[in-house]
Every structure is written in C-alpha cells, then in structure tokens.
Design a protein around this nucleic acid. Structure first.
Lengths: 217, 217
DNA sequence: CTGAAATCTTGGTATTTGTCAAGAATATCA
DNA sequence: TGATATTCTTGACAAATACCAAGATTTCAG
C-alpha cells in the first residue's frame, strides 16, 4: 500500500513536470514567433530574450500598474484582455489602449522613460501573462543588439499607433469613430464591455448605446 | 585698378569663408548642446553625429514633407517655427505638434518606420534648419551605440508626449484645453496664428476666438 | 507703401454631445 | 442556482460646440 502511494506520487510528479515543461515551451514558442515577426533575432539572442520571464495568472479587474507608479515590467499577454486607462476629473475614465494575445503589454512610456505612469493597467478578463522586469530588460538591450533593435522597433510602432489614434480622436465625430471601430475591430464588440469601448472612443456610454441602436449593421 | 579688384575679391572671399565657418560652428554647437542634454555622447560619437548635416533656409509656408510621402530627413531646427498637421474631410486641419528651436523636427513615425506620412510638415515662419537623411542616420545608429541610445531616448520621449496629449484631447473640454495652453505655453499665443492654435486644440477657430475674449487673463 | 489676401472677431443659429434618471437585461460570486 | 451588483437601454432635457456670414483688422508681397 505504501509502495503504491509512492509510485503514484512519483507518477504524478513525473506527469506534472512534463506538463509544466510543455506549457513553458508553448509560452516560449508564442513569444518567439511574436518577436520574430517584428525583428529577427539570432538563436543566441532568442534564447537570452525568452529566458527569465515570470508567469502570472490574475483574475479579472486586477490592477497590474497603478497611475503614479513607475512601470516595472514588460508584459507579454498569453491569454485574456487588458486595458490601459486614465482617470480624470470626477472619476471619468479614458481608455487609451486594449491589449490581447499575442502582444506586449505594460505602460510603454512609463517603462521606457522610468517616470510615473499616468495610466492604470488593468485586466478586463482573467489573464495569463508573462513578464520581465526593467532591470533584466535593460541588460538584454545593453548586451544584445538584436534585442535593442526589437524594443526600438516596438517603440516606433507604438509611436505610430499613438499618432494614428491622435487623428481619429481629433478629427472624427462620435459616429465616425464608432464606424471606424465597427469596421476595424468588430470582434471587440463582443469581447469588451460597451462602457470601455465608449471610453476608448472618448464618448459618453449612453451615447455609445444610442449609436449601437441607430448605426448598427 | 585691376589689382584693387583682385584684392577686394580676395578680402571678400576671406571674410565670407570665416563668417561661414563661424556660422557652421555655431550651428554645430547648438546641436551638440541639445543632444548632450538628452543622452551624453563620447567625443567621437559627437563628431560623427554632427557631421554630414545639410543646411537649408526656407520661406514661410514651405512644405517640408507632404502627407503620403515617406519622411526622408531628421531635421534640427535652428530658427523659425514649424507645424505638423493632418488634413481630413473638407480640408479640415488638425495640428499635431509645433516645433521650434532648439529641437528635432520631422515626421517621427514616418521616418522611423519608413512608412508613408499621414501628416504634412510645414514651416509657419521663415526657417533655418539642418537635416540628415535616413540612410546616414541609420548608419550612425548602427555604428555608434551612443547615437542609437540618443535616437531611442528621443523616440521614447516622443511617445510619452503623444500619450500625454492623448489624455488632454480625450478628457478636457475646449475651455480646459485652452487654459492648459495659456498656462503651459503662453508665448505661443504671440508666435502662432490663432487658427493653428485652434486646430492644435481640436476646436473651431471661431470658438477659440471667443475663448480668448472670455477666458483671457 | 499700398492693394490684395488672409486672419480675426462677433452674433445668431443648428447640431452634436453630455447628463440624468429609471427600468430592463446581464453577469458575477458565494 | 439565486441574490446582488453591474451594465445596458431609452427618453427628455441641458450644455457644449460647430457652423455661417459679414465686417474689422492684420499681414504680406510686389
């Protein structure tokens, strides 16, 4: 009897280890294929880059970074939905960006300049992420030209995106912004609460609801 | 008589050369002190970086980069005022950013990602600028870590600025935006035509004028 | 310096957008 | 699963903002 128990424990541990290993392999694989699309790395760089990430699993509505804090991590989203948002006068929220897998996440400007974040980063749904802290990332950037290139490119694309969105916010009416959203990210309508979509488009939630009724289809 | 003419020519050329030399020294000095504040360079890097810039002098309302073109230059402003703006439906303009000395200029996202610009870059007043083309800049970035660091940092600050402005556009009322402008850049009121300031704040020009009358002081 | 063009101001009006409230629908957690 | 929050919808109303036009002012180029 004792013997059986030992064997079972052993089996359990064996399979658990394999499962964990495969799991980590899959995560790493996801990260690898993501970064390779942005900027090709050598095998050595890839190995260095994918090493040292910490996996976290969090519930919905978990604050990953609070406004006022300085961002400590670069995140990579494996599963779930997150948003960065600003809280203004009278607790009005302005959603800056949504993130979902596979992509990096984190308050980019705060992380890169190591200055306090203006935004909150929060999970919308339960999420699985991996993250690497600023010091490790800095070392990687310092020591591997390809990784520096990767982060630089990512930053450039972020800037491009921010300026693109700038236009939409400044030039488009609520209805136009709504239509752009419908056209460009129809899936978001199902995934994200309307409340957040409204705050992403910079309009009142009730107005968003009315647009849904009139503009739809 | 002939002799006198030759001597005068010689003198002219002599002083002209010296003047030009001093001029270039001053320009370079301006660029040096500007970049040193962002990210310190070694002497060698500084020498490499300040070399190869082309000086241009342009009249007011000169288009430096047109929407649809891919930005070819990184500019450094020595004198004058410029703005980047987007032209939307019915020729409505949205000013993205103003640039004035000493600072870099150019459509940052287009230059960095080498994709077509969404904006026009145009001088508001007659301007003196120096510029370096993308290929040269790329080489400098590739060959000098300090210069890569400089451009990377500049990009990060640009991103930070874009996200900061994002908040203002999305959360503030016209009056609030106007007050922020008054507080943060009062000098702009004298330098920049109200028309452009209005389009910078994302409001109608007539509304801007009314705010000037009511909010002032 | 002067005529022509661009810009600014102002009032009135139309449109867009936000606010409030309350009931309906939906999602969440124990 | 059921109780409890949260979110969504809808209407009427209020506020903000854009639009238009015309005259005053300023700026610019020849």
């Amino acid at each position: 009897m004792k013997c059986l128990k030992v064997i079972m424990n052993w089996f359990f541990y064996f399979y658990y280890s394999i499962a964990l290993y495969i799991f980590r392999l899959m995560e790493t694989e996801l990260l690898c294929s993501f970064v390779q699309k942005i900027s090709p790395l050598t095998n050595e760089e890839l190995l260095a880059f994918t090493n040292g990430w910490q996996a976290i699993t969090v519930k919905r509505k978990t604050v990953l970074t609070a406004a006022g804090e300085t961002e400590r991590y670069l995140y990579f989203v494996l599963e779930g939905l997150q948003r960065a948002f600003y809280i203004g006068e009278e607790n009005k929220e302005a959603t800056i960006v949504f993130t979902y897998p596979p992509s990096f996440s984190g308050v980019a400007d705060s992380l890169l300049t190591q200055t306090p974040s203006l935004y909150f980063l929060e999970t919308i749904t339960a999420s699985r992420l991996i993250r690497i802290n600023y010091e490790q990332l800095s070392d990687l950037i310092k020591n591997y030209p390809g990784i520096q290139q990767l982060i630089f490119k990512t930053t450039c694309f972020a800037l491009k995106g921010a300026l693109q969105r700038h236009i939409e916010l400044q030039c488009f009416s609520n209805e136009e912004k709504f239509k752009v959203l419908l056209r460009r990210s129809p899936h978001m309508l199902h995934l994200v609460p309307n409340k957040y979509l409204a705050s992403y488009l910079g309009m009142d939630a009730t107005n968003f609801s009315k647009l849904l009724a009139t503009v739809k289809i």
